[in-house]
């Protein structure tokens, strides 16, 4: 320990915190450990001692490793999503979102804290100014719930109020299910005479909307594995996209053949970005795996 103090930093507190950080050390861990600055002598020995108490039930261990809400230092949420993912851990745990005035808006549980925060930042940027994060080791459901409860109880004891985002009926922080958005229809119905050729309707649609996916089935219930995979990729990228069901014979009659000609592409799904065909399932999957998609959607 003494050599570490010399080798690592000038402050003995720092050497203590870094040696007690949990494996694997995520980027957030040092910041979190600093949160215990208020009473390091108490918090740190607890941290290092807990793993040995294996006979004890799990919940005390969690509450010992997890800092109190008030002790946890808030981390500001950057606008850039790449920076955001670097700043927050993608581990499991609890997180508490604060608005610009430092007011607690919402306490949530996540299996990927960084991704959850990125999602909130996209949907309610004005409410996501800073976030306190508590990583839960051995994150089974009970441990996560316990961690969430302890933060909620702490806040309610201190203020007498439930965070607004956690009040029942508030859906601000809940990920909206994909089916909320209807699939687009190209025509008013197959018995209506079109005044413009279908090609032109396709052309308008893909140019007016940033991202359009032509899929088999609806976005809430894709009828083909490839379409489903494409929807899954778009959802996980958090893209705001439009979908068109090419199997809908009532409102998109003749679309399959016309679209194939329009794009000179033989299969579905077909995904457009800024009016240009990006590709089908194989191309999207491959770009997704290489991390090329987020830059494409960002532009």
């Amino acid at each position: 320990m003494a050599t570490r103090t010399v080798g690592l930093s000038s402050s003995p507190l720092r050497s203590l915190t870094s040696s007690s950080s949990h494996p694997p050390p995520t980027r957030i861990t040092p910041t979190l450990s600093f949160a215990s600055r208020l009473k390091p002598a108490l918090a740190l020995p607890l941290l290092s001692a807990t793993p040995r108490r294996s006979a004890r039930p799990r919940s005390p261990r969690v509450s010992a490793a997890l800092k109190n809400l008030s002790e946890t230092v808030p981390v500001s949420v950057p606008a850039d999503s790449g920076e955001l993912v670097r700043r927050f851990p993608s581990a499991s745990g609890v997180y508490a979102v604060h608005d610009g005035e430092g007011g607690l808006q919402f306490v949530g549980i996540s299996r990927n804290i960084a991704a959850s925060i990125a999602g909130h930042r996209r949907s309610v940027p004005e409410l996501c100014c800073s976030v306190k994060v508590g990583v839960v080791d051995e994150p089974d459901r009970a441990a996560l719930t316990q961690a969430w409860k302890s933060w909620m109880e702490e806040h309610m004891t201190a203020t007498g109020k439930v965070p607004p985002g956690n009040e029942s009926g508030n859906t601000t922080w809940i990920r909206q299910p994909p089916k909320k958005k209807p699939d687009l229809r190209l025509t008013p119905g197959r018995h209506m005479q079109l005044t413009v050729p279908l090609e032109e309707l396709i052309d308008q649609l893909v140019k007016e909307n940033k991202v359009v996916a032509f899929i088999k089935g609806s976005r809430s219930a894709p009828m083909c594995g490839f379409s489903q995979r494409v929807i899954g990729i778009l959802e996980s990228e958090g893209v705001d996209y439009e979908s068109v069901d090419v199997l809908d014979e009532e409102y998109n009659c003749g679309l399959r053949e016309t679209l194939k000609k329009y794009t000179n592409w033989p299969t579905f799904p077909q995904v457009f970005v800024d009016g240009e065909l990006v590709g089908g399932c194989d191309i999207l999957s491959s770009m997704f795996e290489k991390g090329e998609l987020s830059s494409l959607f960002k532009k």
């Binding site: 033989p266 065909l277 590709g279 191309i283």
Partner: peptide, 17 residues
């Protein structure tokens, strides 16, 4: 681009497709 590459493959297999 990947799209154009796939198009080449699809074109090569025009009959088989």
């Amino acid at each position: 681009r990947l799209l154009e590459r796939h198009r080449l493959v699809n074109a090569a297999l025009q009959e088989e497709m």
